[in-house]
Write a protein that binds this DNA or RNA. Structure first.
Lengths: 104, 104
DNA sequence: TATTTGATTAAGTCATACCTTAATTACCTA
DNA sequence: TAGGTAATTAAGGTATGACTTAATCAAATA
């Protein structure tokens, strides 16, 4: 519980969650979207994973991250993010990315 | 939004919210319940107030604090706290305090 | 097998959160 | 109005979080 709230306390991490909300992504894709270094993103992802909010799966050279859907905190956070001016556009981007993937 | 998550990131502050969940209390009553100094509690209350999670009202010499009921974050946090082993007992205490007050 | 690419770990800096005690403010009452 | 209680503000120490660059690990490929 403590880990969950600590994880959600960072704006960057909430943005990452929003960005992952509709599409699975590699660590590199996530890092490319934000203006901080790759190691910094990696640390944030590790915090999110320790809080049980995301899971990772290594496929070959890449590590794919995705939201843990079956998670009360994630679900509630999802509602909050719908009304959050910072997170909403990232959710839209996430959906666009997912759609593009379904097409291609 | 940022302020809300920052406010909820502290275990002590979540405990204070749980303790206030069923009953209004003065700053002193709240401070008496926790093992940190009164000024420290005062600071936490100020953070919670800035986040819009509690409001205060000065009556004479005392400052009474209470939850802001009409608040999405508070509502969602309330659900989470029901399943939180740290917060639940404090909610029970809060209810007991409220009941004692109704009697007296 | 040497090189490149994706990702994480390590090391170190800087800012900030949280706590303490001391001082101050506001209100009540003898 | 002097003294006491409730509460906050101020000042300062300590720990921790977030970021950086450099180094390392792991997998693909030439």
């Amino acid at each position: 519980m403590q880990r969950v709230f600590e994880a959600l306390a960072s704006t960057t991490r909430r943005k990452i969650l929003a960005y992952l909300s509709k599409a699975e992504m590699t660590a590199g894709e996530i890092a490319a979207r934000f203006e901080i270094s790759k190691p910094a993103v990696s640390q944030h992802l590790s915090v999110l994973e320790n809080a049980g909010l995301v899971t990772s799966e290594k496929r070959g050279q890449y590590v794919h991250y995705r939201l843990v859907e079956d998670n009360l905190a994630n679900t509630l956070n999802g509602y909050l993010q719908e009304v959050c001016p910072v997170s909403r556009p990232l959710k839209v981007e996430s959906a666009a990315k997912a759609a593009r993937r379904d097409e291609g």
